[in-house]
Design a protein around this nucleic acid. Sequence first.
DNA 1: GCCTAGTTTAAACAAGCGTTTGAAATAACG
DNA 2: CGTTATTTCAAACGCTTGTTTAAACTAGGC
Lengths: 222, 222
Amino acid sequence: MMNIFIYGVGKRYRCQMSTKNKILDAAEKLFAIQGFNGTSLREITSQAEVNLAAVNYHFGSKKELIKSVMSRYMNELSPRLELSLVNICEQEDLTLLEVFSAFIDPLLSLNEFKENGTSNFLQLLGRGYSDSQGFLRWFLTTQYPGVINNFVKAVQKAYPELTAEEMFWRLHFTMGTVVFTMSSSDALIDIAKSDFDKKMDIAGVIKKVIPYVAAGVAAPLL
Amino acid sequence: MMNIFIYGVGKRYRCQMSTKNKILDAAEKLFAIQGFNGTSLREITSQAEVNLAAVNYHFGSKKELIKSVMSRYMNELSPRLELSLVNICEQEDLTLLEVFSAFIDPLLSLNEFKENGTSNFLQLLGRGYSDSQGFLRWFLTTQYPGVINNFVKAVQKAYPELTAEEMFWRLHFTMGTVVFTMSSSDALIDIAKSDFDKKMDIAGVIKKVIPYVAAGVAAPLL
DNA sequence: GCCTAGTTTAAACAAGCGTTTGAAATAACG
DNA sequence: CGTTATTTCAAACGCTTGTTTAAACTAGGC
């Protein structure tokens, strides 16, 4: 039901978006909250109100579904992020705080792409690095190398004294900070609200974490 | 076989350490590598060369086994860590780098307690925060509040301008950095070796991460 | 040597998982 | 309309999980 059509070169392809997208949406939400391993296909299909077998019919396997969920965001994010990093890189007297701030707008733009998009994506990213013994880590670094390369280039320009090895470690520390924070961001936001009576959202968390990681990467070499 | 005896008040209790400890040792290693959810009781018991039912007989459930594995380390670590933090707190002109450096010796002392103790414990800690939807987080913060309190006190002394709310966030960022780094430290050490031909161990990683988190927490307030 | 409490064992249990099947339903096209 | 391709569906598959059972085995105390 509710099919849309895509007209190709003379040929007419049919593709139903309903079921496939209902699965993607339900999976995205549940994966973000419970992790990939912690979410079963039965949970996903019942939340999406589709048949259990639909996942394997449309995506082939659970692993491919996970990839599809991530790709939907990465395809949206990565060009904007690369552009933002390239732009910032042209600037002279570049600071690390500026480099990391280049992530803010592209990340927040995911909220226009989809409701709670930024939060969901970052949580998914966090899950991907802790669940599923690193296959998602491999998937992202091989499928989207442009982001990483431009990011490294920008950091190098802002902090030329940083050796390649030290950069390697500090970027992984940064990854850890972000990924961990985001995968438990809902809980942290709740605690901050009850303890400090401060309303906070994902944009607020991003703006808090960026000075932290920028200072961490900028730490003096011993 | 190989039982040891504990003499109580007149009564004589028997307790075999062999099976129970074999399970704890095997579980610890497997949990650290594969995570809690990723490790089955059958893997543990076959590695420990004991019967499958032994886990439920000696520990009651898998959840209690996880707690026991963590407690074995926390009971060793927490008094040393508290002492170290209290000591550093008495010092004047305290820097954040010194506060975080107070973790080094207590953490590395776990290597004397058990082979690969430091590495195993930190990896377990990392797993505990990503697997098992936060029940271990609850367990640790409620069972060992002294460590956290003394740590917060030390950070406050070293950086008095830091508000309670900002401290809350930055300490969570720090937790994320450490936990994420440690749960994938084996992989990172391997990459560092192949990419930079630098031999690294867990002590080396700790000494790299501490300047990073110290600088992150020390970041200027905007 | 018997009795008792503690421990180990093999086997089964019930529940959940991802995946596959083959028939029914639906939509597309000549 | 009739044929064909696509999509849905209920049911089952084979496997793994944590946990339980009840019988076998072990050793200490009298």
